[in-house]
């Protein structure tokens, strides 16, 4: 009785519509911090960079003396700039291919179900969580030209007779950069691919089993296509992350030997910040933009197309 009475009274005094009931407004409010973040920390510097690339600004001075395309005209014929473009693309493409292959294999192994999977997943993510500057220090030592742990190990195993000057040789230095980039990115990609694999409904896998598909057919015809949309997110992230990354190259080789491992970001840093030519630095950095935009569009379209089928 008392309950019925309470209910009746509650009906008489309906609660006001609260903020939580107003999906549209609530959505906007909750989105606002993210939007502010993007605008302030990405949008403003981005606009600033575009303006700087058309100016003769130097050494931190933000006064804009319009010089038109002068900065771009300066960098276009520069052999160092060409080298940086090639390196950026090379490092990004090679490391992303390696990352995706490794990540997929690891994810398949993990997905096959092993004991202590959670612990392993956690351990796997560690390289990604380690501050890159710390990790790079360790890697610098491993690849050190004089004290390389890798060389000593290879020698002890009798696999190396000469000496590898990891950062003293362009090819080796690029290899080292790629190795570290792969090491950094592959745990993240593995977790994403693993999430993709886990999200494949169990009965679809079982249907393939019952339908008579062997291991490779299941991997290539069922699992791969189904993780493409989510894996392309990993690739997209990896590309953007690697192509714009300054730290790996800066800490490992600082662009050396003789500027042969410069990527666009390190060259922009060297020219714009260390060299004091902000305008040119901005022009170099901005060169990545259309390339990345294009890669993003292609990948997103690709991911979308596969999604329509699913």
């Amino acid at each position: 009785m008392a309950l019925a009475e309470q209910l009746r009274q509650a009906r008489l005094r309906p609660a006001r519509r609260t903020l939580a009931d107003r999906g549209d407004l609530l959505g906007r409010i909750m989105l606002a911090p993210a939007l502010a973040y993007v605008l302030l920390l990405a949008g403003v510097p981005f606009v600033l960079a575009i303006m700087l690339s058309f100016s003769s600004a130097t050494a931190g001075g933000l006064e804009f003396h319009w010089v038109g395309l002068h900065n771009f005209a300066e960098i276009l014929p520069d052999p160092l700039f060409h080298r940086a473009i090639i390196n950026t693309i090379l490092i990004t493409v090679v490391s992303q291919i390696a990352v995706m292959v490794l990540a997929t294999v690891t994810a398949l192994v993990l997905d096959a179900g092993i004991r202590g999977m959670r612990v392993f997943r956690f351990l796997l993510l560690l390289p990604w969580a380690v501050p890159v500057s710390l990790a790079a220090l360790a890697w610098v030592w491993m690849f050190d030209s004089t004290f390389s742990v890798i060389n000593w190990t290879l020698r002890a195993l009798g696999l190396l007779h000469g000496w590898l000057y990891w950062f003293g040789d362009t090819t080796l230095a690029l290899t080292a950069i790629i190795v570290v980039d792969v090491w950094r990115m592959f745990p993240f990609a593995t977790v994403i691919v693993l999430a993709g694999l886990t999200s494949i409904p169990q009965d679809i896998r079982e249907a393939a089993l019952v339908d008579g598909a062997g291991f490779w057919r299941r991997v290539f015809q069922i699992e791969f296509p189904l993780i493409v949309p989510i894996a392309s997110v990993a690739v997209l992230f990896g590309i953007a992350f690697t192509a714009t990354d300054l730290t790996t190259v800066y800490l490992l080789t600082n662009g050396g030997p003789y500027n042969s491992t410069q990527v666009l970001s390190t060259l922009a840093f060297q020219r714009g910040i260390l060299g004091g030519d902000l305008g040119q630095g901005a022009a170099i950095a901005l060169f990545l933009l259309p390339v990345l935009a294009l890669a993003t569009i292609i990948l997103l379209r690709f991911a979308r197309r596969t999604e329509i089928g699913s």
Partner: peptide, 26 residues
């Protein structure tokens, strides 16, 4: 044996034709 699942477990990225053809391809 052949099995029909409660969810049908159709391969979402394959057309109806490819779905039906899959056991034969295998």
């Amino acid at each position: 044996i052949a099995m029909v699942f409660q969810s049908y477990a159709l391969y979402p990225h394959k057309t109806a034709f490819s779905n039906i053809a899959f056991p034969l391809e295998a």
